[in-house]
Design a protein around this nucleic acid. Structure first.
Length: 634
DNA sequence: ACTTAGTTGCAGGA
DNA sequence: TCCTGCAACTAAGT
């Protein structure tokens, strides 16, 4: 590997000190590289870029990387949201300066940026800092290249409330694992910055040509195309570095990428983002009394703000949300508002959790997997990643000999588990690219520690592909949380597949929408249609086992088994970086614990589970799955 | 060694 | 909409 060269970042103010002769600084030709921030508001990096003295030319640029299209499995809905957000900001630039737009360079950043620097005589490149593992590697490559080419790099934090790397540093290089810890550290780091003013004026671009354009945009990528399964035909996106001749530097379309149209109803872009934020802020009581745990995952219209996709693509800045809420709540207090919610369940807490995960990710190698991840508890999940003797993940991934787990995973992914609540959530996720936070909890718990005992790595990958608001830190973080692998450990608290959705919606509206084959079942059976008598199934025109699957497992029995096994894993007390995990000896040891009867010397987990089931049967005087009938008013 | 808190469990009861 | 018992986790504080 080539030695890393660090690019010294000098603060603009220092650089703009008047020279000896008090003459104008040399003309600056500046590229602003958009990556995580498709907005003009609340962008410290963009503000910094525009404050460079004596700007002669300015190009807001997006590098559309074909390698990214190949290597990352990104669902249609997220691609679509990205393209819409790019179109929107391009329009915003044009509105500010008729000669401006988002200059989309189609090719690997190393290739197209180097070309642009050379052709356009670029002196500075500025971007918003991104602290996740993938971005750090990419950005370091560009920094090295920039130094070689004599281009000055300025990267500024702004994606989070506090720079995750700085928070980690202040925590002794350790990841923040609780919100309290994160709060304690950031308290000493000063208040959260207020959002800056959006730019008044965007300077003109200079050259509008990349020179010779010989279609080398694909670069030298060789490997598996992870998006092959969603491509419809010939890609035309990367035929030329500067895009189609008739519309150079334009934002690609789904068709150019070889993708069919998206299915989501969620529209991208900074304008939509600000409409959503303003809508939320226009109801001060809702802002001041926001409580995530009490919002409704069963709601047809999102019961939360739906700001997450916009935060993910930087269509809105976190400081705008933070201070917008502060402003509204302050006014609400003055008017005598009552019942204000506190952290962590209020809006501020939600933003803080996002920061906490970002810091945890920035300080944890292999945060997105079990092996080598020192914060992640080792549990012998089915279908977990497999590695060869050199520590590389085996690719392509072989089908496990645990056929039952493979089938359960497939059913979970496709929304065919036979549990309407789970199936509705998974189908909504696939078609909309978004489900409520607590719905994510429910399906994640079910797949991992609740019932299926399947690795969170598998579930995380499905979310990677389908979520529009996918975040490289929050997604693995939340999967570890829900699987009791890190952050959370109360594995005996398991979401019910009937009781949990029933808590907020007895009518099953979400199920009726996303599992339409069940739409004519009475409320009583909507979350457990297999319990409906034959006559009811016939009347609903849906025979369970034929038109809709039977439950693929026994909820209660699997739950008891999972709890017993996780208890054993906790007794073993190994993390992803333990030598036993790396050399493969952890798995047989834990399996032996399961066989022996585990943590409890007298009784095996299975026996304890059986005991609990027995008790429950006595209480209910019926089959465990029938328990929910008792609550129904007839 | 003990207590307490931890965004988001369930069932049953007032 | 609150409470309790369930069987019981970790981390931080006393």
């Amino acid at each position: 590997m080539a030695p890393r060269r660090t690019v010294k970042q000098e603060h603009i103010k220092q650089e703009s000190k008047p020279s000896l002769m008090d003459s104008q600084p040399a003309p600056a030709r500046v590229i602003y590289w958009h990556r995580t921030d498709l907005r003009l508001t609340d962008s410290p990096a963009l503000t910094t870029a525009l404050s460079i003295p004596n700007i002669e030319s300015f190009w807001p640029v997006w590098c559309f990387d074909p390698e990214y299209v190949y290597r990352h499995r990104v669902g249609l809905n997220r691609w679509n949201f990205l393209l819409e957000s790019m179109e929107t900001i391009s329009g915003e630039y044009k509105r500010s300066n008729g000669d401006q737009k988002l200059w989309v360079l189609r090719g690997r950043p190393e290739l197209v940026l180097k070309r642009a620097w050379k052709e356009w005589g670029v002196t500075h490149i500025v971007w918003e800092k991104d602290s996740n593992a993938y971005s750090k590697v990419r950005d370091q490559r560009i920094k090295d290249l920039a130094q070689e080419c004599g281009v000055q790099v300025i990267d500024m934090p702004g994606r989070h409330l506090y720079d995750p790397d700085e928070v980690g540093k202040a925590n002794g290089g350790k990841p923040t694992m609780t919100l309290h810890q994160w709060q304690g550290i950031t308290k000493k780091m000063g208040p959260i910055a207020e959002p800056g003013q959006p730019p008044e004026r965007i300077p003109d671009p200079g050259s509008k040509s990349l020179g010779v354009d010989d279609g080398e945009a694909w670069g030298s990528y060789e490997g598996e195309d992870l998006n092959a399964h969603i491509r419809t035909g010939q890609d035309t996106c990367f035929e030329r570095l500067s895009g189609p001749l008739e519309d150079p530097f334009s934002v690609p379309t789904m068709a150019q990428l070889g993708f069919p149209p998206a299915t989501t109803t969620i529209r991208g872009g900074t304008i939509e983002a600000h409409l959503r934020l303003d809508l939320f802020l226009s109801n001060p009581t809702a802002v001041a009394t926001f409580s995530k745990p009490h919002s409704e995952p069963t709601s047809l219209e999102p019961s939360t703000t739906l700001l997450s996709p916009y935060i993910k693509f930087g269509c809105v800045g976190v400081r705008e949300i933070w201070w917008g809420c502060q402003r509204v709540i302050e006014a609400w207090r003055k008017k005598g508002g009552k019942g204000e919610t506190k952290e962590p369940e209020n809006m501020f807490g939600q933003l803080e959790f996002r920061d906490m995960y970002a810091c945890a990710e920035a300080c944890t190698p292999h945060f997105e997997r079990i092996r080598g991840n020192h914060v992640c508890r080792y549990i012998d999940w089915a279908l977990s990643n497999q590695y060869d003797s050199t520590g590389h993940e085996i690719s392509p991934r072989p089908r496990s000999d645990n056929e039952e787990a493979e089938e359960r995973f497939e059913a979970w992914r496709e929304g065919k588990t036979g549990f309407p609540w789970i199936d509705a959530c998974m189908r909504q996720l696939k078609s909309e690219g978004w489900i409520h936070h607590l719905a994510r909890h429910s399906v994640a718990c079910f797949l991992t520690r609740g019932q299926c005992y399947i690795s969170w790595e598998r579930g995380m990958e499905v979310f990677d592909e389908w979520l529009i608001d996918w975040d490289p830190a929050s997604n693995p973080g939340n999967w570890m949380w829900l699987s009791c692998s890190a952050f959370f450990s109360q594995y005996f608290r398991v979401y019910g597949l009937v009781s949990w959705p029933q808590r907020t919606d007895k009518t099953g509206a979400l199920v009726r929408k996303y599992c339409p084959e069940l739409k004519d079942f009475p409320d009583k059976y909507i979350y457990a249609p297999h319990l409906a008598p034959q006559a009811v199934q016939e009347k609903a025109n849906c025979i369970i086992g034929t038109d809709y699957p039977l439950p693929m497992l026994d909820e209660q029995a699997c739950k008891d088994l999972c709890i017993a096994r996780i208890k054993n894993a906790y007794t073993l007390a190994l993390h992803g970086d333990a030598p036993e995990v790396l050399d493969g000896s952890a798995e047989p040891r834990l399996k032996a614990l399961h066989e022996e009867g585990g943590a409890s010397k007298e009784k095996s987990g299975e026996e304890r589970g059986e005991e609990r089931r027995e008790k429950r049967r006595k209480r209910n005087g019926n089959e465990s799955l029938d328990g929910f009938f008792k609550k129904q008013k007839t």
